[in-house]
């Protein structure tokens, strides 16, 4: 008797017709992927981002609202490479949506489609929060981003073949605009070559790889660990011998550490947008790189 209600609901659950979607329901783990999905999917997709530029994508809670979103998603678009390991597997287990499990077509892991940097030879917790499959912050290299866009385009087509032509033409258009932008950025970024920067976390490795910028230190003594006075003193010592142009951090990181080191060394601290929504006017992937370069060039001049 007690279970009648439960049973009825379960039967309803099975019986509910797959909600006839004219649009693909896409759950992006981070704003950069939501933005890419919008570029490629246009009005044929409905996109939500699980996180904002104000949130640390390493540390998100498997909140009820996110479970509800994963439950209804046709596709998850995430960085992968263990960036979301602290929350995404829990969402996938809780949501009961088999379409978006790892290994399914409904789970797209961006980092899987590019050459990753910083794959450790050995992984040990005493090294901090290191990712065995390499640095997951892959979106900050526009060359890699284009590779990811190409793979994502194929994924959209395989999930929604009836709109294949639409996706193909959107991708072609995006690719064209992106390549033009890349040429412009590369010209603009010429003076940044060889620039030396101190980072908060290893968020920028791919950007630096693209622009040939040198990372000379990190505010986190080990990835994921908060900075300490001792570590700042050590950094200061290194920086007096070999100075850097700036200390970079992003919105979700506490600026205190960067500002403290800036006081100690006289090196300017600069906030970079990191992802879409991470600064004024940073509304899509194009403006993300425009703004990032603008702020770095301002330091250089």
């Amino acid at each position: 008797m007690k279970y009648t209600l439960c049973l009825v609901l379960i039967v309803m659950g099975i019986g509910l017709p797959q909600i006839a979607f004219s649009q693909l329901n896409i759950f992006a783990c981070e704003p950069e992927w939501a933005s890419l999905v919008k570029e490629l999917g246009g009005d044929r997709v409905l996109t939500t981002s699980a996180t904002t530029a104000h949130q640390d994508p390493h540390r998100i809670e498997a909140r009820p609202s996110l479970i509800a979103k994963v439950r209804r998603a046709d596709l998850l678009v995430c960085s992968g490479a263990e960036l979301e390991i602290g929350w995404l597997p829990m969402l996938q287990r809780q949501a009961g949506n088999r379409k978006v499990l790892a290994g399914q077509t409904g789970y797209f892991e961006a980092a899987q489609w590019v050459d990753r940097l910083g794959i450790p030879e050995k992984v040990d917790r005493s090294m901090g929060d290191v990712h065995a499959s390499g640095n997951p912050h892959v979106h900050l290299d526009p060359r890699r981003l284009l590779q990811i866009a190409s793979a994502l385009n194929e994924r959209l087509i395989s999930l929604d073949p009836s709109n294949a032509q639409y996706y193909q033409s959107r991708f072609a258009d995006f690719k064209h605009r992106w390549q033009l932008a890349m040429e412009r950025w590369q010209r603009l970024a010429e003076p940044l070559k060889g620039m030396r920067l101190v980072v908060h976390h290893q968020d920028w490795d791919y950007l630096f790889d693209w622009l040939h910028i040198e990372k000379v230190g990190a505010l986190e003594p080990k990835p994921g660990l908060p900075t300490s006075a001792g570590h700042l003193a050590k950094l200061k010592h290194t920086l007096t011998e070999m100075p850097a142009s700036a200390i970079v951090y992003t919105h979700y990181q506490n600026p205190k550490a960067a500002k403290r080191l800036s006081q100690l060394t006289g090196i300017v601290a600069v906030e970079l947008p990191y992802t879409v929504g991470g600064g004024e006017g940073v509304t899509d992937l194009f403006t993300l790189f425009d703004e990032t370069l603008k702020r770095l060039l301002k330091v250089k001049s």
Partner: peptide
């Protein structure tokens, strides 16, 4: 779909997940 992706030659660089 998986056949389709094989045809398209879309194979990941290598699995990012430490499976």
């Amino acid at each position: 779909i998986s056949t389709l992706s094989l045809v398209l030659g879309l194979t990941p660089v290598y699995a990012a997940e430490s499976e």
